[in-house]
Design a protein around this nucleic acid. Sequence first.
DNA 1: CGCTGTGTTGAGGAAGATCAAGCGCCGTGG
DNA 2: CCACGGCGCTTGATCTTCCTCAACACAGCG
Lengths: 246, 246
Amino acid sequence: MSMTPGPPPPRVTIDRSDPVHRRLEQLSPGLAATIGLHSRRYSPRIVRSRREIVHDGEPVSGVWALRAGWAALVRHFADGRRQIEHVLLPGDPLPLEREATYPATIVALTPVTLIDLDGPWLSDPALLDDVLRRHTMATVHHLLDATARLGRQVAIERFAHLLLELRDRLRGVGLATDTHFRMPLTQEMLADTLGLTSVHVNRTLQMMRQQQLIELEGREVTLLQPGELARMADYPSPAVPPVAMR
Amino acid sequence: MSMTPGPPPPRVTIDRSDPVHRRLEQLSPGLAATIGLHSRRYSPRIVRSRREIVHDGEPVSGVWALRAGWAALVRHFADGRRQIEHVLLPGDPLPLEREATYPATIVALTPVTLIDLDGPWLSDPALLDDVLRRHTMATVHHLLDATARLGRQVAIERFAHLLLELRDRLRGVGLATDTHFRMPLTQEMLADTLGLTSVHVNRTLQMMRQQQLIELEGREVTLLQPGELARMADYPSPAVPPVAMR
DNA sequence: CGCTGTGTTGAGGAAGATCAAGCGCCGTGG
DNA sequence: CCACGGCGCTTGATCTTCCTCAACACAGCG
């Protein structure tokens, strides 16, 4: 992972409402205080939309986390087909292991800000191992969901399922309510995530709008009937109590 | 994970040609000797075909590995649809973490024999952590492949891709040559893995036979044109040198 | 002011699903 | 010993979902 040239970006701080803080606390409660997350100033790495953050097979050092923006694990086929295998949201760590070669290409779906949680100021480098292990398990969970979605669901079910996953993950870092969030994905990115064409995504979206299931204007999503969406997508209902909102 | 009633199964030993030994050595070279894998006698757990080995969300203790038979991570939908999310082969460990609740249901695709690598005789319980971490990373790798396969490939490409994955994994534990292995899956199981119906799997299979791509009789698979299969499936060519055969 | 990216719509076609039927094999019980 | 039933495989006919190709509107931007 190399730094892009340009003017040095401003150093940033992470407060308690920051998605990075919230995600870290989900993964390993109490860790933020232990590693002095709030007292440090981080030198962010900025990546422009559509640029690669990590190339497939590239060794990654540091424990980078998404401070802002969306990214994705992507697979490219020889003939130009593309599959988004997993979406990364604000707060998410990038790596699954320390000092390992990455098992996929990561691209920025929007302009992205990254910070490295690792560094010599840590009293013990192993402090972050716990976070990575739990993050890996969460990733496995989402990949299992994705295989079921892509393998056995039709377009409208896949769409509903993805929206509910995104809502729950964003809600966990304070970026969504039960029914509303911002989703900065184009219909083509949605298509690459859902295993469909952008034309069919558009038509499915029209259908969901007409059935009063969702609203989507600008980049703002509103789930008009979250229960019905969960039913049709076979999505597990609110099992875990929702995390406090901002 | 509870033991089924019945007569106590015979205790078994693991020799150097055993898939469990080979897989363990792949994941953590030298570990088999360290934990005395060959000197111990294990009490196997037997599971009949189509029975559940682990139920979704169930806490699992012990580090079980597949000594013989095939199993699968499965998702069931409310209306009866089923997706096989990941296939487990001889030698594969079951759990991704110690003492954790399992993130999916595991069913036996064939009669299965399991052994528990964990136990009080281990000098250090943490010895197995390394194995589990690497096994988890391998699983992530396969799940990423599965999402690309299901999301963006057509039936014949999916089939070719799956066959190559199975060949490579089986070859790693001495159960396949470059072109041949035993695949004890019914066409319906293949359909649930590939996100297709069994009828369409059958027709795709006919097509591949007619094009001289593969042979499949009994449960024996022969890849007649592995290079062509890899090309059409966008499957990475022999990058890693193959492991020694039995 | 033209260009590019994004969303939208139409028409036609292909991949895969669904429904239905028949066949061979094998284990089981009469 | 044989009839039966279940399972897995195969094939045909028809239908649905989704893709492909194409065109156009609109907004942002150099």
